[in-house]
Design a protein around this nucleic acid. Structure first.
Lengths: 334, 334
DNA sequence: ACCCAAGATGAAACCGGTTACATCTTGGAA
DNA sequence: TTCCAAGATGTAACCGGTTTCATCTTGGGT
């Protein structure tokens, strides 16, 4: 059964399509009996206006785009839910595209958003942006979108609104807290801080923490690779072999935390080190396994990001905002 | 900077918009030098055609819809990724909407898909469909979408393509396997089988299993409530209090499995019963905690579902398909 | 009774593409 | 040389809405 059009409805009601359009958009302009007649015909034929046509005609879209690395990662899944809660309330639908933490996909995702002429974009940039040339390209692409962009979780220092957690501060706090508990040899397992702003923020926080408590950085305790479980697994295994051992370890995202736990469980040394994980790791609380972590509430992040976009759409000229969210340290084992 | 239109490009190139449209859609129809000129102008001004206009004009959309209960549940997050892999390859973008396992939201989601005039819909129905009236309404709504619909994970017996796991068989197998290992008192924690096809399939599988091995069903061992962690937690606590105890328990989705584990961990009785979980529970493998589960590969489910939609779009008249996927039992503790 | 403003509705242009059809070239066959 | 088919391009209608502007009623003030 083909979809009805506004002309079909107009014909059945014996009015012009302008009138039908009015009952859709400003019903108060249409005289009572006419409106009722049109409404009943719309109901009878189950008519729903086409967003495509409406968007084209109005020159604005009713959908916003979301670009994240991978939705199956619970951090981003939850972020996405938070975004949805707010956009839904504002009558915006969500167009999803992953970038798989990969620059090429990232550009394709932006291209998609552009052809779709979305109203705004939530953008978690692919994690690595080494060369400045790449960054300029992304910036150009973002600007040519012609719509507001909210950079989430990763501040790639572009002239757009951003919102993310204060990872640097959280890392610093974690180090200080560990030091206060007597730890002097604190290892860290992180992503690559030379190619990722995210990783370098975290690393800087680590260094600041060490400095604050007067501990000299020991390269043997610093692992910076990729944000993958497998990398942390290998790093942990290597740590376990060292002649001089750390007494604490900080893992810098949920995948890395899982990799560390995997290695620890395999060696039966789960509590060899005091472990602080950036991002809570699921199931540990249920299993009553004590767990220290830096809590980043990604649902809240999503909600805040969505509110930021809504306000940006309403006030396009307002100056750029950079929102920093607190990520508290939750201590259970030391 | 406003977006360029096809007319702008045509004007700059000194040709008609038809010609520009041709270099976009069938470049071979355009003479070499003309095409190159147009292409270079498009590149220079970073022109990207509007999908909105194209969709309206072509009378087909390039996006497909996905309706799932909640994306933050890893089962659905992974399902979504699987869908994306295939739709991406086929040049389709994804419009997301959650239904929160709630009928009202479900109808709103379908309405959204209709106004967006999507090319097809992946639909995981809200879990409960008690009254036949509600079902008819959903069916009417689905039909009025005017596009292919793939019902995923939950077969609500409507005339659309479906794909889901053979939960009934998997449950039956699990019971038989437990019985063969000597278990006679096998409890089950499930959703409400009177209001959900999903839950009733699982319950029926459980009953078939009992029957196959000649065990009489004992109501004291059957818990059917809602698919929430908190429900399984309470159910498990209650089981633990019983004078006559089961020796094994089957939990019928990942939330219920988690709730059971939570209760068990709290009582320090993690291995009091042999536990089989429908759906693998994350982290247990990493932590080297042995775990029996019915494995449902939701990434694969998503890919298969997407292939089904692609083929349905290509062959609208092909007869309806109902695909059943195997869900193997993974045994580790008995 | 007259006039005008306000209210209801319609006509038509427009949004940015696609496409059927018309027109104009051009080159090769006869 | 003539003629026609094939190839290149343009014209204009169309997709399904929205919106400006014009037209037509109607009722109240004087």
């Amino acid at each position: 059964m083909k979809n009805m059009t506004i002309s079909d409805i107009a014909a059945k009601a014996g009015v012009s399509k302008a009138t039908v359009s009015r009952v859709l958009n400003s019903p108060e302009m249409v005289e009572g009996s006419t409106r009722e007649k049109i409404e009943s015909i719309m109901k009878e034929y189950n008519y729903t206006p086409s967003a495509t046509a409406r968007n084209l005609s109005k020159q604005v879209s009713s959908t916003v785009g979301v670009i994240v690395p991978e939705i199956s990662n619970s951090f981003f899944g939850t972020l996405f839910s938070g975004i949805e809660e707010i956009t839904n309330k504002n009558g915006l639908s969500l167009l999803y595209c992953s970038n798989e933490d990969n620059e090429k996909k990232d550009l394709m995702a932006l291209e998609l958003m552009k052809t779709q002429r979305v109203r705004g974009v939530f953008y978690v940039p692919a994690v690595n942006y080494p060369a400045m040339g790449k960054k300029k390209k992304i910036q150009k692409e973002l600007e040519s979108l012609g719509c507001p962009v909210i950079c989430i979780d990763r501040d790639i220092a572009l002239p757009f609104d951003t919102i993310h957690f204060d990872d640097r501060k959280a890392m610093k706090n974690a180090v200080i807290s560990l030091a206060e508990a007597g730890h002097r040899r604190i290892a860290v397992i992180n992503g690559n801080s030379e190619s990722s702003v995210l990783a370098s923020e975290r690393y800087d926080g680590y260094l600041e923490g060490l400095k604050a408590v007067g501990i000299e950085m020991d390269e043997a305790f610093v692992y910076q690779g990729v944000y993958k479980q497998s990398y942390a697994y290998l790093a942990a295994k290597e740590l376990f072999q060292k002649k001089e051992q750390p007494t604490a370890v900080i893992t810098c995202n949920n995948n890395l935390g899982r990799g560390y736990l995997q290695a620890a469980a395999e060696c039966g040394t789960a509590d060899l080190y005091t472990h602080v994980s950036l991002d809570k790791i699921e199931m540990l609380d249920l299993l009553k396994i004590p767990h220290n972590y830096i809590e980043r509430d990604s649902y809240e992040l999503g909600k805040k990001a969505a509110e930021l976009l809504i306000s940006r759409i309403a006030f396009p000229e307002k100056r750029i905002q950079n929102i920093l969210m607190e990520a508290p340290l939750i201590r259970e084992t030391y």
